[in-house]
Design a binder for these strands. Sequence first.
DNA 1: GTTTTGTTTGTGAAAATTCACAAATGAAGC
DNA 2: GCTTCATTTGTGAATTTTCACAAACAAAAC
Lengths: 413, 413
Amino acid sequence: MAAQQGYFNQYQHADIDELADAIGELLNNPITIEDVDHKLIAYSSHGESTDQARWSTIMGRRVPERVLTRLWKDGVFQQLWTQDDPVHVPAKDEVGLGNRVAIAIRKGNDVLGYIWAQEVNRPFTPEDDEILRQAARVAVPRLLERQGKRRAEEQRRKEFFWELLLGNDTSEAVLKRKQKSLQLDLPSPFVICIIESPEPRLEQFLYPLLQRDKMLWVTDGTQVIILVGVPPAAASEGVTLRQYVEHFLGETAGKLKERFREEQTIGVYGRAYHSLPDVARSYREALQVLQVKHSFPAETGNVRGYSELGIYRFLPQLKRWADAEGYENERLLLLKQYDEENQTNLLQTLETFLDTVGRVNLTAQKLHIHINTLSYRLRRIEEIIEVDLDDANMRTSLYLDLKMAKIGRELGS
Amino acid sequence: MAAQQGYFNQYQHADIDELADAIGELLNNPITIEDVDHKLIAYSSHGESTDQARWSTIMGRRVPERVLTRLWKDGVFQQLWTQDDPVHVPAKDEVGLGNRVAIAIRKGNDVLGYIWAQEVNRPFTPEDDEILRQAARVAVPRLLERQGKRRAEEQRRKEFFWELLLGNDTSEAVLKRKQKSLQLDLPSPFVICIIESPEPRLEQFLYPLLQRDKMLWVTDGTQVIILVGVPPAAASEGVTLRQYVEHFLGETAGKLKERFREEQTIGVYGRAYHSLPDVARSYREALQVLQVKHSFPAETGNVRGYSELGIYRFLPQLKRWADAEGYENERLLLLKQYDEENQTNLLQTLETFLDTVGRVNLTAQKLHIHINTLSYRLRRIEEIIEVDLDDANMRTSLYLDLKMAKIGRELGS
DNA sequence: GTTTTGTTTGTGAAAATTCACAAATGAAGC
DNA sequence: GCTTCATTTGTGAATTTTCACAAACAAAAC
């Protein structure tokens, strides 16, 4: 063990650039060290030929956006964040990336940065992995020191974000002052987005994505709460906030499913706002969506935004109100009773009809019955419950009472 | 004056039958005296020929139902109740009624009974009217005495009815005992019906109708509150309660309109129930209908029953919730804004479309536009507010939010 | 048993809806 | 001036809806 850890014994107190050179010499390949934001910290100076990606990184003092996007899509960062071992990345010529291996520099669960090695002068050997593991450990104090200030600031930002989310009646002026002192630019419009999952490694999994887009986010265990705006690049292409958020959530959900076979992850978001005090409002809306999706999983299956909730925005409340005054829709009771007494399906027929906004063809298909059967049933329904299905008011209230009745049934079963 | 009042000076303390004979002699025609329920009290004994109606009345000790119905329809009782002078009624052969004249016996605003005279032996003269006027005055003490007990009982019934209406948590057992002691038979099912009118003579006008059907009713000035059940005669013909109540209200509304040119009379009713404690519930429902009809006169124009309220049953409540949390439907705002910026009518188009349950033909007709124009507009609406109008949930919530927005506008203007 | 009743499915024709495509209009922007 | 764009209206064809009428069937009532 002591022998194996010996590669960098003499570099315990060395400069980070010296460490990069030392690794580079041991591997006989070019080395780059980045922090968690992919800003360049150090690089080995001996290497001759470097690929396009490395060149751009050094010149721009940061890994180019398109490279990051590609690596994110391929799940490289997910691997880096969830495993201690080096990750081997095959060449990606499209983004000018040759074969390379990377390892995360971590302290506990936090990732402080990455060490990248390129396969240029000689092929990687299994021994190189151990060298990188040791290098990552040795680099820790250097990165901690370097990032101390940055982390403290991030901490303050997160605290401020929580303050905004909980909306403690702080005046807008005070909030704006704080915002300025933290150099936090609020995208406008923005939404608050919540990703909830029982997966314990959720945060680690999302971390690189959140870091990549420099989003403001916090977590409270099962939920990751994110403030999302349209990045300038997407905005210039005319992408709306709703499209962006939907894409963002689709991306995460897809990734999560493919990695953890996790179906229980739910991404939701509130409405779009512009001002600081509305962060709390958008957050509350997102929470409400989450709650409704738990109560009506089938009905709100592909709903993620508060604006898409429709009647489910107020249905639970309305149901409580109706229950309190003992209201029951007589017509629906009558129809249910008729169904029971005559072994018919008029209630289901009505519901399907209303669900398809009165499209008889569709309704008949869904129910697997002849269209004339449907038209006969609809006539019977109108007769039995004395209702005119061509009356918008009646249709609407039947629809609502039907969906409300389902709440009771779901909770009751 | 003293001279004119002299006809019955000697009969001040006479028996009611003697009074009938005295009038009969003065007019030289047959006389019948009835109480307010049309029960026979007295009749002159000298007349020879009597018509079918009088004969039936005397034999049955009450005016036959079909005669009452006919007189009611012709507005005879309305006249009797609202004027002090005798009312001349032309012969109605269909119900066996010859020419006759009648006057109400009244004490203040209360009608105690009627005096009927038939034109048999000689034609009526103007003097006969004065004789009848005086006779009606003389008859008062006799009817008061006779009806004292009956009135007291009616008073107790009305007090009991108020108790039921206000629903003071009295147990059903106690209520049932009271009901039994008052010999009150509750129709089942029943509804509570309210007729409201600014017309001060409303009660007087309705009195004979209410009396005719022996309904339980009370009044509090502008409102007459009635407990309505289906009379046995109608029930045997298969008339439902709803049909009966609608007919009843239609009848009163029609009569009121024709007599007072009164358009502001509103008749409403709660839902149908069977048990005593539900009287209060049906009453509260009727009151709610009344309130809603004041808030949405246009939308609920031909709605009278609580079951027909549809969404308006809960729309005010929904609106209060929305206001409390500052909710506004973004899509509708967006559409309104678009309309203002481009001088279009998309909001109105959407509302008409939703009002006609998506019947494009009807919508186009209502808006006086070509059907293709409508289809273009609907496509634009879907684009602008990013909504799928084939989605029942979205349609419903747009419909509700539209109608809710109208509340604000109405109250604001 | 027969008859009645409620339900399902079929046929066919008129009316309504949906869709693509094109021409005309008028207002806004160049 | 011209062009562009949103809007309205027209034409025509495929599809859907509506409606009336009738046959088939099973369960309930006689």
